[in-house]
């Protein structure tokens, strides 16, 4: 189950006529999953610059987690901003959340990088949450490097 919460559950047995009566009924796998929920978002933006100069890029990250698991949980929040797929800023936070606790955040990552050659390079911002619930979102843009 993802992004879903069981709010209410019930079951019953009914039915009776002159031919017979329903007596009992139940679900054998009656473990109602109580899963936590999370949402994440990531965005990044096109930039342009010159070769061998510092190029500053930004990513915006937002995330929300609510622990409805019934027990304490630890969630790992990974924020990444990568230029050319390999030049990366990586921010990781471990957060302990008690049952029915929650946390949310908006933050901006910044990565300064430089390029030797002119060309167009990938830029990716990623927001990822893992734990008893997990979510990932990637925002993409382009770095334009000129001579």
């Amino acid at each position: 189950m993802s992004h879903a919460t069981v709010l209410k559950h019930r079951s019953w047995v009914d039915g009776k006529n002159f031919k017979g009566t329903a007596l009992t009924g139940y679900l054998e796998n009656k473990s109602i999953p109580l899963s936590s929920s999370s949402t994440v978002k990531a965005r990044t933006y096109d930039v342009s610059g010159l070769i061998n100069k510092n190029i500053q890029t930004r990513g915006t990250h937002s995330y929300f987690v609510k622990n409805t698991s019934g027990t304490n949980q630890v969630y790992v929040v990974d924020l990444k901003l990568c230029a050319n797929l390999t030049y990366c800023f990586h921010d990781q936070t471990h957060i302990r959340v008690t049952n029915m606790g929650y946390f949310s955040n908006n933050s901006t990552s910044s990565l300064t990088s430089s390029f030797v050659y002119a060309g167009d390079y990938h830029l990716e911002a990623t927001t990822h949450i893992s734990g008893d619930t997990s979510s990932t979102n990637v925002g993409r843009a382009t770095i334009y490097i000129r001579r």
């Binding site: 510092n54 930004r58 924020l79 901003l81 230029a83 050319n84 030049y87 990366c88 800023f89 990586h90 921010d91 908006n106 933050s107 901006t108 990552s109 910044s110 990565l111 300064t112 990088s113 430089s114 390029f115 030797v116 050659y117 390079y121």
Partner: peptide, 12 residues
């Protein structure tokens, strides 16, 4: 050989 990461941080 094409470039490198120089610095990174969370701004807020």
């Amino acid at each position: 050989d094409k470039g490198r990461a120089i610095e990174g941080h969370i701004e807020n």
